[in-house]
Structure formats: structure tokens, C-alpha cells
Amino acid sequence: MSDQVGQDNKPGTDCENAKGAGSSTSESIKIKVRDEAGMEVLFRVKMNTQMRKIKEKYCEKAEKNITHIRFLFDGETINDDTTPKELDMEPDDIIEVVSAQTGGHRTHLY
């Protein structure tokens, strides 16, 4: 399964990430989104597409509730407003999808 995510981003404001400024962001890469069961969804995205869009598209495709999942890249959560460029993503990089965790309502002894 693969999908095209369109690009619809405002350029970052001045107070935003200074590292990303000034270079070309028009190239696109292919990234995989993989869930805990190993199911993968492939996306071709522009380097400056906001992760929010990829997340929304993924939830639509994989029929998941966006509030119940988290996107992780290299063990760190992905903020909705970052982009593959800011995350230094490379072709075929994998985003892992995990379920939200909760606690504080014990029925067992831990």
C-alpha cells in the first residue's frame, strides 16, 4: 500500500527552527510507517511535509484512532509540526507506530 501526501506548508516563521532555514525542501522521499504488528504503510512525502499530515493519512489508511497512537522515530516521539527534513530522515527510514500507554489504575500488585 502506498500513498501520496501532498505538500501544503507555510514556510517556517523566523522564530522557528533555524537549522532548517535556507536549503531546498522540494525533494521527496519514501518512508515506511510500521505498526506494532509489523504492518507497513509506505508514503512518498516531500521533505517539508508536516508530520501531522502523514499521521492523519496513516490513520485513515490503517483505520486507527489518531488519539490512540504515537509516531516514533529513532526512539523519540515525533511532534506534529516537524518535517522529515528537520528529523534528518533518509529514504526508506521507518516510523514506528505505538499505542498510547496509560497507568494508575491497578488491579494487580506491582
Binding site: L72, D74, G75, Q101, T102, G103, G104, H105, R106, T107, H108, Y110
Partner: peptide
């Protein structure tokens, strides 16, 4: 898989990790 090789742990005073047990408990 996640090894955080871009981080230098010794530049931090602390590394903290919340641990969730069976969606019921936090350590």
C-alpha cells in the same frame, strides 16, 4: 533497535525513563 547514538549521555546529569507496566502501573 533504538540506541540514541546521536545523544551523548554523559553530557546529562540524569537520564530518566518512565516505565509502564501492563497499562496499569508506572515506575
Amino acid at each position: 533497535e533504538w540506541l540514541f547514538t546521536k545523544k551523548r549521555f554523559t553530557t546529562f546529569d540524569w537520564v530518566l525513563l518512565p516505565i509502564n507496566v501492563d497499562n496499569q502501573h508506572w515506575m
